[in-house]
Design a protein around this nucleic acid. Structure first.
Length: 873
RNA sequence: GCGGGCGUGGCGGAAUUGGUAGACGCACUGGAUUUAGGUUCCAGCGACGAAAGUUGUGGGGGUUCGAGUCCCUCCGCCCGCACCA
């Protein structure tokens, strides 16, 4: 006896148990089928999963299950990005050890993810905080060190005063720490760096080939890498004007064509020349101090005036030694970019123009726009940076910008001073090396030892891992490793003398820069990867995650893969062949009359079709409906996945996540939407029941009649459409096609009532199978239950994807819309192979067409095969 | 400021990439079933109109037999970067 309602609560755990018992989703590395690697960005074990996780992992799961049915050997693993600050914060607040906190969260979240019914190979699960994982990371760090990919240098770093750690440039957002939100300070520290800039050119060039990445992400990376082509020019300094007899100043410019418009030179406040000059000039020293003070308060920079201080140093124009330019220290010059020095051409650079207007240095336009009279062209307070031809520039006059750039480079390259060319062509990057030192406990220890006589000594590889000590306390701020009584005190591996262990740990972005490679074989005890295995699985065919990782994680991973190639741990450059960035899960916000946020679960909505009003469920008081925003605890607009799965079932949650919004856009979570998804689950159950009944009398007779053909046609049409859309990750369209098929099948079932047509049972049987198979990647539990109901054997999760019968999709008679002068007036049904003449005759004989033509003759009839007919009268 | 994206019913969104605008879902309306609510089933649902029809994809203009889609222009919203020489 078939129950009236589908009981997700009972069915879902039952089917998960069956999948587990059969080890259905365990992936073998020696499987001969073609590989397909689908990966969702692994979660940080923060406590509990949120709806964003549900959306992310559902999408990946649809792809995994679909590709599996399509005959691929699918790798779909899961792990934990388990190191990081929140564990330490929790330790400080709740007196719980970071390890304990992390593993408890992992246990909770693993159970939650498993309740979603994901087709994941859990045997490959990894946690980055596991010594069995980070041991290999330490090994690779040492390999990178040997290969010259690691640097230890003093650098001005971004210091987060709240988290008491260094931040990478990428982790500073609007001058604030990405986690703490504290204003970031500049400090000089000795740090470990990974030399990502070695690959700047390659990381930039290969972006073009990543054609299965969103254009937006590629563009963001391109901007971040910030490649520019320009000229390094060595200006001679006028003898007698420099503090210590310096004779040259190197500048970098992308506009050498504007050299004759130069009015001044400027160097960064921390430029060596500025420092040298400051030693002999207290006023200048004070100015530099002032710049630094403003420099730390990042907010001020945006509004800050262009300020400068004339050092008294004079530079000579490279094309005319008698032409001298004043050298300023200016607050808007960055030491980190180029050479930390510029020549200023105010007419064609807004910043330089602001500067000269303040200090009265004037400007000379040297590029004239095409529509301007060169003799009358002047600049006052808006610099011109467009195209044009050179003026006021001696031998460059009349040239285009490109020609002038080339001419300047050509001439200065040939000239020499002190056995060096006066100028060199140079490609410059905005990208900086990746500082990975963090003064934190809960991270991967950097495996080196500091010895007073031997310097920095790598920990011998056979002594790895350097395991984090567990006896630490968090009652004072700072790094507990640094104050650990025993752990940090070791003997030097080289000379045996007393030495200190490095107490900095690695940025957690290192952990996530290679986990996708480790998934290919997490059992390897002695090495990070097996070359043959990792090369057979990588690149990841489809990577899915949030846009927030467009730069950090994805750029680091691209670099790390290259570094792994150089050190023999992998054989490719690009780790992710296909990338998809999904949108967020958003929800309305609610506030009561006191302005306090109200949980969606405490709100009742009333609607008359146009207006919606909200009330508090317990008090009945009106609640104000606010803007739709990303789910967040602070605004209380969250919905707990556990509650949804508990009341509706995982399939309903999955289905709702995939419907309506295109996956790259934000999806609005609504109670009505979930209910609709839940209704559809029940509808599927009833429909499949009816189909099972209708096809029970199956006698093997093929479907031939009108209804039977229509049933098969509907099924195969949906199959073709869903297939196409899953391949392109257009899940919202898949959902729509499945709804449409359900509607069509219901309709045809109604028509089939009492109909006596040969082979109907056969048609419904086939359509039922296809229907359930289409559902299976999205609602896997329901699909299994329906599969049994249809009388099929085995698991639908283990059944090959059906073949589209293309011949069925070809119509013999087609109905074309008919337009007269571009307006639709009628439909015409013609044979599929009807020729132009036959269609024209059929169209002109239509009464509606005649009427619309108002007796005028047809001047032209346009027939677009299979599409439309347009009569021009 | 620079770069990118977007604008379609009450709402989320479709539109075979220049060929019937509004698929599918939500909300809503009417009817049937039900003691009632819910569920379920049937029907309707851009606007104006009784209908025929007219009109309609942010505004204006253009190309085309034909424009949501292409071009120009204006308006609005969102995202990223931001003193990068």
């Amino acid at each position: 006896m078939r129950p009236e309602r589908y009981n997700a609560k009972e069915a879902e755990p039952k089917w998960r148990k069956v999948w587990n018992e059969r080890d259905l989703f365990r992936t073998k590395n020696d499987d001969p089928r073609p590989k397909y690697y689908v990966l969702e960005m692994f979660p940080y074990p923060s406590g509990r999963i949120h709806m964003g996780h549900v959306r992310n992992y559902t999408m990946g799961d649809v792809v995994a299950r679909y590709k599996r049915a399509k005959g691929f050997n699918v790798l779909h693993p899961m792990g934990w990005d388990a190191f990081g600050m929140p564990a330490e914060n929790a330790a400080m607040q709740n007196k719980v050890h970071p390890k304990e906190w992390t593993y408890a969260n992992i246990a909770t979240m693993r159970a939650q993810l498993q309740s979603m019914g994901l087709a994941i190979d859990w045997s490959r699960e990894i946690a980055t905080c596991d010594p069995a994982y980070y041991k290999h990371q330490q090994r690779m760090f040492l390999d990178f060190l040997e290969a010259g990919l690691v640097d230890r240098k003093t650098a001005k770093v971004n210091w987060d005063p709240v988290d008491q750690t260094v931040l990478a440039n990428e982790q500073v957002i609007d001058g604030r720490g990405w986690r703490s939100g504290a204003l970031v300070e500049q400090r000089e520290l000795t740090q470990w760096f990974l030399k990502i800039t070695d690959y700047a050119e390659d990381l930039n060039d290969k972006l073009d080939a990543l054609n299965r990445w969103p254009e937006k992400v590629r563009l963001m990376q391109r901007n971040w890498i910030g490649r520019s082509e320009g000229l390094l020019v060595r200006f001679a300094l006028q003898p007698g004007t420099t503090p210590n007899g310096e004779s040259e100043l190197e500048i970098y410019t992308t506009r050498p064509d504007t050299l004759f418009g130069a009015k001044f030179m400027a160097v960064a406040p921390d430029h060596p020349l500025a420092r040298a000059a400051a030693e002999k000039n207290p006023e200048l020293a004070a100015f530099i101090e002032e710049c630094k003070r403003i420099g730390t308060a990042q907010e001020a920079i945006e509004k800050a005036e262009k300020l400068g201080f004339d050092t008294g140093i004079r530079a000579q124009h490279p094309f005319d030694p008698s032409w001298t330019l004043p050298v300023y220290v200016a607050n808007f010059i960055l030491m980190e970019y180029g050479t930390g020095a510029i020549f200023g051409c105010p007419a064609h650079d807004q910043r330089d123009l602001d500067f000269v207007n303040k200090y009265g240095l004037g400007n000379t336009p040297v590029v004239c726009p095409p529509d301007q009279d060169p003799s009358a062209f002047t600049i006052t307070d808006t610099a011109y940076d467009g195209e044009g031809r050179l003026i006021n520039s001696r031998f460059l006059d009349g040239m285009t910008i490109q020609e002038a750039k080339e001419e300047v480079a050509r001439r200065l390259e040939k000239e020499t001073r002190n056995n060096r060319p006066v100028a060199e062509r140079k490609v410059n990057f905005r990208l900086r090396d990746w500082g990975i030192s963090r003064q934190r406990y809960w991270g991967c220890p950097i495996p080196v030892i500091h010895c007073d006589s031997c310097g920095v000594v790598p920990v011998p590889k056979d002594q790895l891992p350097v395991v984090l000590p567990e006896d630490v306390s968090f009652d004072v701020p700072g790094n507990p490793l640094d104050r650990h009584p025993t752990w940090k005190h070791v003997s030097c591996p080289k000379c045996g003398a007393k030495a200190r262990r490095e107490t900095d740990t690695m940025d957690t972005f290192v952990d996530s820069s290679w986990y996708f490679a480790r998934f290919t074989d997490p059992t390897l005890g002695d090495k990070p990867t097996d070359r043959a295995t990792v090369d057979s699985w990588l690149p990841v065919d489809q990577y899915i995650g949030g846009i927030e990782h467009a730069i950090l994680h994805l750029l680091y991973s691209r670099f790390f893969t290259r570094a792994m190639k150089k050190t023999g741990h992998a054989g490719l450059d690009e780790p992710f062949a296909g990338l998809f960035t999904q949108g967020m899960v958003v929800h309305e916000t609610y506030r009561d009359r006191n302005g306090a946020w109200v949980l969606p679960g405490d709100v009742r909505i009333e609607s008359d079709g146009t207006n919606r009003k909200a009330f508090h469920v317990t008090t009945g008081e009106p609640v104000e409906i606010g803007s739709i925003e990303k789910m967040s605890k602070s605004k209380k607009n969250t919905v707990d996945p556990d509650e949804i799965i508990g009341s509706y079932g995982a399939d309903t949650a999955r289905w709702f996540m995939l419907s309506d919004s295109p996956p790259e856009r934000d999806v609005i979570w609504t109670e009505e939407g979930v209910q609709g998804a839940g209704r559809f689950v029940q509808r599927v159950w009833r429909l499949v029941g009816e189909i099972a009944d209708r096809s029970a009398a199956w006698d093997g007779a093929p479907a031939e009649g009108r209804i039977g053909t229509a049933v098969r046609k509907a099924a195969h049409k949906a199959l073709a459409a869903v297939e196409d859309d899953v391949e392109r990750l257009r899940f919202n369209r898949c959902v729509a096609h499945i709804y449409e098929l359900a509607n069509n099948l219901q309709d045809l079932l109604n028509q089939a009532k009492g109909a006596d047509e040969p082979g109907l049972a056969s048609a419904f049987r086939e359509a039922g199978r296809i229907f359930v198979q289409l559902l299976a990647p999205m609602m896997p539990h329901l699909a299994e239950e329906c599969w049994v109901e249809l009388g099929e054997t085995g698991l639908v999760a283990d059944t090959p994807w059906p073949q589209v019968e293309r011949a069925l999709l070809v119509e013999n008679a087609i109905t074309l819309p008919v337009q007269v002068n571009g307006k639709k007036r009628a439909d015409v049904t013609v044979a599929r192979d009807a020729d132009q003449a036959a269609i024209e005759a059929a169209v002109l004989s239509l009464e509606a067409v005649q009427r619309a033509m108002e007796g005028k003759p047809a001047r032209k009839i346009i027939v677009v095969p299979q599409r439309i007919v347009n009569v021009v009268a």
